[in-house]
Structures are given as C-alpha cells and as structure tokens.
C-alpha cells in the first residue's frame, strides 16, 4: 500500500511537471516572438528588445524553463509584466479568495448532489426521480454565467440583500469577502450538482440491482441498513471520480462566475492577465490550476481506498 501511495504521488508530480511543460511551451514557443506578441505589431524595436531582455528571451527555452521551474518549486513564479511585482504575491491572495468559493461550492454541491442522487436512484422512475432528473438536465443545460446573471437579476437587483458586484480588492480580509461568496457559490453549485447527481443516480441504480444488495434484502434487513451499509460505499466509488473532475472544473468555472460578480479571485486575475498579456501570471495560474486538478484526483484516489477494501488491502492496483 505504501508503494502504491509513493507511486501515485510520483505520478501526480510527473503530471504537474508535464502540464507545466505544455503550458510553458504554449506560452513561450508557439507564437514565434513573445515580445512582439505582448507589445503588438507596431511596437518600436527598442521596446521589443527591452522586453526580450526582461523576459530573458535570448537564452535557450530549455534553460529558461529549468530556471522557471526551479523558481516555481520554491513558490517564485517570476515577475509580473504589468505591476513589476512578484507574481506569487498576487497569485496566493487571489487563490485564497477563490478557495473560499471553491470550498463552499464543494461542500454544498457534494452534499446536495449525493442526497438528491441517492433519492433519485432509490425512487427510480417515480416522481421524485422524474423531478430531480428534470432539474438536473436543466442545470446541465444552462451555463454558469447564465445562472450567475439570472441570480444577479433576481436577488441583488430586485431584492438587494447580497452584493451583486464585489467592490473589495484582492487583499480584503476574509470576513469582508464572506457575503460576496454566497452568490458565486450558488451559481457554481447549481451546475456542479447537476453533473454529480446524474452519476450518483446511475451508480445507485446499478448497485441496488447488484446481487449483494439483493442478498442483503433477502436477509430481511431494513431498507435503511441495506442502503447505507451495503449499497452506499460501492455506489459512491464511481461518484468520487466525477466529484474530483468537477472540483477541477470549478477552477475553470470560477473564471466566468468571478467575472460576473467582479470577485477578486484567481479567475479574475487570469482574465486580467489575458487582457494585459501578462504572460508570467498566465503561466503561473495555469500551472496552479493543473496542480489543483492533480491534487483533487489524488484525494479521490485516497477516498476510493477508504471505501474499497480491495484497494486498501493492496491486492490489485488501479488501472
């Protein structure tokens, strides 16, 4: 089991490394001359040369990547082209703010989707299922920025109890940001719940039809016990991966939602850096996003081990 964990950790680190290579390549190598890209076609040769110097573009890409990586490992993602300050300071602040939304969303979406999914699965083809499944389908069909826009319209403008637009800066204390977290969380939860509910429902239906659940029923056990003790652990297993994937999706989803609410999170930082072509920031955000994704998958794997004794006792490795 320990070797399994080590192997899993190494492969996670490898994935993040490879992802940062891809991001680095996309940002630095694809467009030909970065400096011209950043400054635009009609920049003066002097300005281009100065930027090339600042970005170290005259040295081989491999070397630059190695240096960047060495810095990134220590938490140093270089210097922002716009503010001239270290990228990491702004990055961690915005990441903290985004994690507020993400944590709240995960808590809300995972709980509600598991409850709804299990209910829909158990009442398959009856009205609770029909209702939940229809809502789910609606949730999947509406993009998160629409949900966000509608929320702004319905709640902040007609019933102004919650801030529709956040006016705090990135460095505002957490307590000040808390009211602003509510609406983005609701918008993201709606969409995320929709996806997880579907998985939970299918998985519950599969497991409830399995032989071991039938056996438990035929043992004369109560319905609650059959569901909670026998069915749920197996039913949640496939759901875990979907949850992990959705948490990773969150990192992307917040870009849009934060933009709607003007929330100072990582999505907004990303968007600003795209507009201002602040490549070091862009690169850092993308790599941090990849790291979050990998961590989520790792967490899902660990949770799977907790639920599945077959993995825990280490008879077979996954995949």
């Amino acid at each position: 089991m320990l070797t399994f964990l080590t192997r899993r950790l190494l492969s996670a680190a490898g994935t993040v490394l490879l992802a940062s290579v891809l991001v680095f390549a996309a940002v630095q190598l694809l467009p030909g001359d970065v400096a011209t890209q950043v400054l635009g076609q009609d920049a003066t040769p002097e300005a281009v040369a100065a930027l090339r110097d600042q970005l170290d573009l005259n040295r081989p890409a491999v070397l630059r990547f190695a240096e960047w990586l060495a810095g990134a490992v220590r938490g140093d993602f270089g210097t922002s082209l716009v503010s001239g300050e270290p990228v990491s300071g702004a990055l961690w602040l915005h990441l903290r703010n985004t994690l507020l939304i993400a944590a709240a969303t995960v808590a809300v979406a995972v709980t509600s989707s598991i409850v709804l999914g299990v209910v829909a699965g158990l009442y398959r083809d009856r009205w609770p299922d029909t209702l939940i499944s229809s809502l789910t389908l609606a949730g999947m069909s509406v993009p998160e920025f629409v949900v966000a826009t509608l929320l702004v319209m319905a709640l902040s403008i007609s019933v102004p109890v919650l801030p529709a637009v956040v006016l705090d800066g990135a460095s505002a204390p957490v307590a000040d940001l808390l009211p602003a977290v509510v609406l983005p969380t609701v918008a993201l939860s709606v969409v995320m719940t929709a996806y997880i509910v579907r998985m939970t429902r299918t998985s519950v239906i599969d497991v409830m039809a399995s032989e071991f659940v039938t056996t438990a029923r035929l043992k004369g056990l109560g319905a609650w016990r059959v569901v909670v003790r026998h069915a749920l652990p197996s039913a949640l297993l496939p759901t875990l991966n979907v949850i992990a994937m959705n948490v990773a999706w969150l990192v992307g989803g917040v870009v849009v939602v934060e933009n709607v609410f003007n929330y100072p999170g990582i999505g907004k930082l990303m968007l600003e850096s795209v507009h201002s072509r602040d490549l070091p920031v862009l690169q850092a955000v993308a790599v941090v996003g990849a790291a979050v994704y990998v961590l989520c998958n790792l967490a899902a794997d660990l949770a799977a081990m907790a639920l599945n004794p077959r993995l825990r006792t280490g008879e077979r490795s996954t995949r």
């Binding site: 399995s210 032989e211 071991f212 659940v213 039938t214 056996t215 438990a216 035929l218 043992k219 004369g220 056990l221 003790r229 026998h230 652990p233 197996s234 639920l307 599945n308 004794p309 077959r310």
Partner: peptide
C-alpha cells in the same frame, strides 16, 4: 430474517465487497 434463506450461484457477487 427468520424463516427462509437463499444461497445464490456466485457468493463472490452476493457478499457486499465493502
């Protein structure tokens, strides 16, 4: 629970894995 019990074809599937 008391009067009738069944043993199926494949106990590997009939026992709860978790």
């Amino acid at each position: 629970a008391r009067d009738v019990a069944m043993v199926g074809q494949n106990a590997g599937n009939a026992l709860t894995p978790s």
